Amino acid sequence: MDFIKVTVDERISHIYLDRGKSNAVDQQMLDELRQAIAAAQDDQAVEGIILHGKEGFFSAGLDLVALYGYDEAEVRRFWVTFMDVISALVSFDKPAVAAIGGHSPAAGCVLAICCDCRVMANGDYIIGLNEIPVGIIVPESIFLLYSFWLGQAAASRYLLEGKLFKPKEAFEAGLVDEVVDGKSIRTAAERQLRKYTQYERNTWRQSKRNIRRALIAAFESDQQETIDAVLKQWWSPATRSILKTVIDNLKK
């Protein structure tokens, strides 16, 4: 795999996002991540996963530069795969921890909130869902995932304003579970994971499935209508204009 690196250490699968400086998500990265999640789920020797980014960036979210150039079939395939990956992470019944070593807006935040626990590095970093300001519709299933951790009222307010949190703000809001020095993030993530793996395996995993039953059902339902709405907005002149401005700023 080119953009996802996996190491297994003491029955923990460490899945590293490794695409460029900012770990922006494109089609290939999603394909590889889906493969890594499935492998960890199927491997009886793996007790849980830790999802890592890089120092400074967990993931900057969607690679808007790449996606802007996709044709209609490619964009549809991307969104179908994206929803499949999120569904796989939401339904992953072993313990999962996100080690957020830096910025984690938009799709980066979505990947993190699929996990059971989030440990974030302290620093001048941001995390949150800011899709609306860039003209991207947030699917209902992803709102349910956001509100699973923040509560519906808070999630609604933060989503509609595109709120991005600093690490300590994210901790206070309940979006992350611990804020640590960046050099300690792997150790902290492993410690959090061991809190889960100490319990009887089947009891813990079935309880997780029960707790997430509504979430899992939301992602396993037919996403066609949701994706159609996202794509309709994606190709609208208003959103294309916003994306073009964002991309021009990124290139500068």
Rank of each mutant, 00 (worst) to 15 (best):
E200K: 03
S207K: 10
N210D: 13
S207Y: 03
A217Y: 12
R212C: 11
R213E: 04
T203A: 15
Q192Y: 12
G182C: 11
I216K: 08
Y196F: 15
A188G: 08
R213K: 11
V179K: 02
R212Y: 14
A189H: 01
R186A: 04
S184C: 01
Y196M: 15
Y199A: 12
R205S: 03
V176E: 06
D222T: 10
R212V: 05
N210K: 12
A214Q: 12
S207D: 11
I185N: 01
R213V: 04
L193T: 05
S184I: 04
E178G: 09
V176T: 05
Y196H: 15
G174W: 03
Q206Y: 14
K195P: 00
S221M: 13
E178Y: 10
R209T: 05
V176K: 12
T203F: 13
S184E: 04
N210T: 10
A189G: 10
R186K: 08
Y199S: 08
Y196K: 10
E178K: 15
L175H: 03
K195M: 02
N202R: 15
S184P: 10
R191D: 08
V179T: 02
L215C: 13
Q206D: 15
A189P: 07
K195H: 07
I211S: 11
S221C: 02
F219C: 14
A188V: 00
I216T: 15
L193Y: 02
T203D: 04
Q206N: 14
D222V: 12
A217C: 15
A189T: 02
A217E: 15
S221F: 02
F219H: 03
G182T: 07
F219D: 12
R212I: 13
R213Y: 01
V179P: 00
A218N: 01
E190Y: 00
R194Q: 10
D222C: 08
S221G: 09
S221T: 13
A218C: 04
R194W: 04
A214P: 01
T197F: 04
K195T: 13
R212M: 12
S207C: 06
R194E: 11
E190G: 05
Y196P: 12
W204T: 02
R186S: 00
R186F: 00
R205F: 04
G174V: 08
K195E: 13
G174E: 09
W204M: 09
V179S: 05
S221E: 09
A214G: 02
I185A: 01
D177M: 02
L215T: 07
T197I: 02
N210E: 13
Q198I: 15
K208I: 08
A188D: 02
K208S: 07
D177Y: 00
K208V: 03
W204G: 01
D222M: 12
R186V: 06
L175C: 05
V179W: 00
D181Y: 08
K183D: 11
I216H: 06
Y196W: 14
A218W: 03
T203E: 14
E178H: 08
E220R: 15
I216D: 14
R205Y: 00
T203M: 09
D222H: 05
S184M: 08
V176C: 15
S207G: 10
